[in-house]
Amino acid sequence: MKTSPRLESALKKLYTAFHSNKLNPECNKHCAVGNILDNTDIWKHLSDHHGSIKLNYIGTVHQRIGRKFNGYSPLELLEIEATFLKACGYQLPLHYKNTKPKNPTDKIILFKGLSDVIRILCEMDGIDNVMDYTKLFEVKNQKAFYDIV
């Protein structure tokens, strides 16, 4: 399966962050988007609230002029982050009164978040979800439809 350079880069960064324990939903530099943007928090200025999918004035300007951050538009970045936080169990936007997971850096919680992020990244690039393993179980005439090699 052929992937875009932005997807390939994002997947590598998220994989590395997950396995090196540098993925934290509550940190702007170490959340899903923070990792995609090389552990910077520049993206937080695109919206007024962490987890919001509504662009603020700065975000709207960048969106309208076609600005991309490591290949992703401001709206795409906000959608990626909101997807990650929701899948990790957060009520959005992030606020101390809203519900959140008891242990946000638990590997199972982070894996759920990353699975949804990878799904949406693939959708954004118009390709099949690279984590979809259901094809491995497809059969035709009582035999596996795909070979694992």
Score class of each variant (00 low, 15 high):
40 T>K: 04
18 F>P: 01
86 K>P: 01
11 L>N: 03
99 T>F: 12
27 C>L: 02
70 N>Y: 14
141 N>A: 10
87 A>G: 02
77 L>I: 13
22 K>I: 04
146 Y>C: 04
61 V>E: 11
4 S>I: 12
76 E>P: 07
147 D>E: 15
2 K>H: 00
69 F>K: 10
1 M>P: 11
116 D>V: 00
136 L>E: 04
38 D>C: 13
107 K>F: 09
128 D>S: 09
136 L>W: 00
114 L>E: 00
143 K>Q: 09
140 K>Y: 06
96 Y>K: 09
56 N>D: 12
53 I>K: 09
82 A>N: 06
122 C>F: 08
68 K>M: 03
33 V>L: 00
50 H>Y: 10
114 L>W: 08
51 G>Y: 00
147 D>G: 14
149 V>M: 05
28 N>S: 12
39 N>T: 08
41 D>Q: 07
43 W>F: 07
126 G>R: 07
17 A>W: 05
31 C>H: 04
139 V>N: 03
123 E>F: 05
125 D>Q: 05
3 T>H: 01
121 L>N: 03
95 H>W: 02
98 N>R: 03
12 K>F: 10
10 A>H: 08
130 V>R: 04
42 I>R: 08
104 P>S: 03
122 C>A: 10
137 F>Q: 12
20 S>E: 11
36 I>M: 11
11 L>A: 05
56 N>I: 12
51 G>K: 00
19 H>F: 13
127 I>A: 06
52 S>L: 08
103 N>T: 10
24 N>G: 01
106 D>Q: 08
141 N>L: 08
21 N>V: 02
69 F>V: 11
2 K>D: 03
112 K>D: 08
131 M>H: 06
70 N>A: 15
84 F>V: 06
40 T>V: 06
11 L>R: 06
73 S>Y: 14
77 L>D: 04
82 A>D: 03
22 K>P: 00
